[in-house]
């Protein structure tokens, strides 16, 4: 049995997205949340590359992916900076102590 490259990539995309969302729903650690976001973006990036390949515009797909990487890196940096400040000001990275704003 052979599995084509597109199918493999689709499974990977779905897997990454699924794991990412599952992690966001369940984790209680801020760093893990940021990691989960990274997984999600990687999944989306793969999808873009695959779309480029499927439509015969691989270069376009790849350039999209590279742009996403740049944006995504900035998100990660801001996220980590926030995490550092959270640790400094609130004293913990546990999401359960980030619930003062509600109702």
């Amino acid at each position: 049995m052979t599995i084509s490259i597109p199918t493999t990539v689709i499974i990977m995309v779905l897997g990454l997205i699924g794991i990412g969302i599952y992690a966001l729903l369940t984790t209680r650690h801020l760093i893990k949340v940021i990691v989960a976001l990274q997984l999600l973006v990687k999944g989306a990036m793969l999808a873009l590359v695959l779309a480029g390949r499927l439509t015969g515009q691989e270069e376009l797909g790849q350039s999209l992916a590279i742009t996403v990487i740049i944006a995504d890196t900035i998100v990660a940096v801001i996220g980590m900076a926030l995490a550092v400040q959270v640790r400094r000001v609130i004293g913990t990275l546990d999401l359960r102590s980030l619930t003062s704003l509600r109702r």
Binding site: L24, L30, V33, L37, V75, I78, G79, L82, A83, Q85, V86, V89, I90, L98, T99, S100, L101
Partner: peptide, 9 residues
């Protein structure tokens, strides 16, 4: 910070 984290995620 809390607001920023929720907004970002």
């Amino acid at each position: 910070l809390e607001a920023g984290v929720k907004y970002l995620v």
